[in-house]
């Protein structure tokens, strides 16, 4: 059976409309829209350097997007990716510091495991609170972001501070030998590879296993799912664990591939940007990959817009906002164009 073309055609059309709207906006602001688009292309995809720049920025976004996308499939709107990145990065750094003399593969595995576990528990706690206490998960996940950041600052400035880190307090270094390397001869660290693997694996889980099927049923109608005997609570907790583990892994990668330590740079808004990516990808783990790359590209070209066109840094925020709104508005178009589904019907 042929698939419907809608999931491809509508987002692409929405993307073009958003670019058009952004073009009108920056023209009104006095910039040369065509030149801006040319710079954006050059900065995001124009050269091999630009591609690497884009992909390396997409890496954390894929993982934090999963943190919102998976729970959304079961009906939970969680915006706590930022907190899970921070706690995941923090515990991963601690693990790396404790094990620093073990062999790098052991250190990295342990760091990933610990980062994923704490990130997972962090988000699972949110859905447990929702389930057992009826606490709104959107709000509690937001509050926990602030709390995670405060805990990290407390630890980094206090008990866990490496006194050598003078003006930017950080934990001790996990050891140069234990750093996550770059992929082949590129300047893209393995975080990108891990992100793609996680997206594909979770896509398989969500789309091609009974577990994923059960999650979708529970997400569609909790009451019906309960009546049909699905263990809704367990599904919720497991989904949140996986979601948090993805964000925790993003934190671990920030530590292992970029900073080598945990410090306030873990709080770099990847969690919040992941929310956008998840919604635009319509919570489909596979679609997260191209959307994250697109957003990585927007961020990658932002510098060039400042340097070439004197546009403020916020232009990329405006563009992201326009894309998000147009994509959401386009949701309403699904199922309205019968000609896009023609093949499905005849099949």
């Amino acid at each position: 059976m042929m698939r419907s073309f809608e999931p491809i055609v509508i987002p692409i059309a929405a993307l073009l409309v958003s670019l058009l709207m952004f073009g009108i906006f920056i023209t009104a602001a006095g910039a040369d829209a065509l030149g801006v688009f040319e710079s954006m292309y050059r900065g995001a995809f124009g050269t091999w350097f630009s591609w690497q720049n884009t992909l390396v920025r997409a890496a954390p976004l894929m993982l934090t997007a999963l943190c919102t996308a998976l729970p959304a499939r079961i009906g939970l709107i969680i915006i706590g990716g930022e907190g899970a990145v921070v706690v995941g990065g923090m515990t991963a750094a601690l693990t790396g510091i404790v094990l620093t003399h073990a062999s790098p593969i052991v250190v990295l595995t342990a760091m990933a495991f610990m980062g994923m576990t704490t990130g997972g528990l962090w988000i699972a706690a949110i859905s447990a609170l929702r389930h057992y206490r009826g606490v709104n998960e959107t709000i509690s996940s937001l509050l926990l972001n602030y709390i995670a950041i405060a805990i990290m600052n407390f630890l980094v400035f206090g008990p866990l501070r490496d006194p050598e880190t003078l003006n930017k307090p950080s934990t001790y270094h996990i050891g140069e030998a234990n750093m996550l390397t770059e992929m082949g001869s590129t300047s893209i660290h393995w975080g990108f590879g891990l992100g793609v693997i996680a997206c594909v694996a979770l896509w398989v889980l969500m789309r091609h296993t009974p577990f994923g099927f059960a999650v979708d049923i529970a997400g569609g109608n909790v009451r019906a799912a309960k009546l049909s005997g699905l263990p809704v609570t367990r599904l919720m907790i497991i989904t949140s664990l996986l979601a948090g583990a993805a964000a925790g892994l993003a934190g671990m990668i920030e530590v292992a591939a970029v900073h080598g330590r945990a410090n306030s740079s873990l709080n770099a808004n990847y969690g919040y940007e992941g929310i956008l990516v998840a919604f635009i990808a319509r919570h489909n783990p596979l679609a997260i990959i191209p959307v994250a790359i697109l957003f990585g590209g927007i961020r990658a070209s932002s510098g060039l817009l400042q340097r070439d066109h004197d546009l403020p840094d916020a232009s990329s925020l405006v563009l992201q906002g326009i894309i998000f709104i147009v994509i959401l508005a386009s949701e309403t178009l699904y199922g309205r164009f019968s000609w896009l589904r023609a093949k499905e019907k005849t099949a």
Binding site: T47, F49, S50, N53, V56, R57, A300, L304
Partner: peptide, 9 residues
């Protein structure tokens, strides 16, 4: 990446 971008582009 901002530094590399300034150098490369």
């Amino acid at each position: 990446k901002a530094m590399e971008s300034m150098i490369n582009l």
